[in-house]
Design a protein around this nucleic acid. Sequence first.
DNA 1: GACATTCCATTGACTCCGCAAGTATTGTCA
DNA 2: TGACAATACTTGCGGAGTCAATGGAATGTC
Lengths: 147, 147
Amino acid sequence: MRAWSRLLRAYAATTRLLSTELQAEHGLTVNDYEALYVLGRAEGRRMKRVELSRRLLLTPSGVTRLLEGLEDAGLVERVACPTDLRVSYAQLTDAGAAKLEAASCGHVASVRALFAEHFSEAEMEHLAELLGRLPGVSEGDDACGAA
Amino acid sequence: MRAWSRLLRAYAATTRLLSTELQAEHGLTVNDYEALYVLGRAEGRRMKRVELSRRLLLTPSGVTRLLEGLEDAGLVERVACPTDLRVSYAQLTDAGAAKLEAASCGHVASVRALFAEHFSEAEMEHLAELLGRLPGVSEGDDACGAA
DNA sequence: GACATTCCATTGACTCCGCAAGTATTGTCA
DNA sequence: TGACAATACTTGCGGAGTCAATGGAATGTC
């Protein structure tokens, strides 16, 4: 089916493009960015790791590894939960917030540029709506980059 | 932008689902399947590796590795080109064609099921059309699984 | 006919991420 | 209370794919 194969290709193509750019300009992967973004909008700029894994559609181990990198870069801190010793929050640091701010600007512009080149506002809306119907896609929504 | 973040999530979600199934039933990844499929419809069931990398949106090295697996499994053969010693064709074997046949049935059904559950025919068409506008998505088209 | 250039393909080192297994903590129910 | 399940997270291993570097072959230029 065309829709399916195109979804594969669309992902591959756009990801490659945007990821390369984000990497070159800020040293972040797409998922790094999404993680910072999600944390930035979260209550107290922190979030349980499990929560994060649901938002990003990653497995818990994926989240651990993702945060490893962000922690090493000082963008995210590990904060223990006082009431439940099992959980540890991922908390955006000031550096992380600054990084997010810095990256947002260019990244959002790139995304907009890429999509606006091929779609009208209404079509983007429609595309988002359609994709949102697939299972699990619009879980904890409000999602991606500012605007 | 919602459309972008949902594209990411849609890919992650659907891929995970369908890939797991394909893996369990036939030991193929999604890209393995796409490769077999593309080869199956190619002139003489063979294709230059560069060509394949364009169709699958993989880098040449990605193709080399992908075919490595398929060759080990006896689904694809390496055939030299007489007129240009640089190129080597990937040629679908009879076993490969059989495997494709076997996998197609279930896989196509799964894909259809997944999409049909959430979209009407017209919506799928529309979705495919929208995704196809993104750069590089509808290159060498006719694309995916029988239908 | 020698040279640089370009193209096809492969390899090694790396990243990202999923799976399965393991640990630590919490909750439940006898 | 103590046993057992469930939850949150981490870790070892492996697969898949990228990039950069390489080698071999074809092409264009003088």
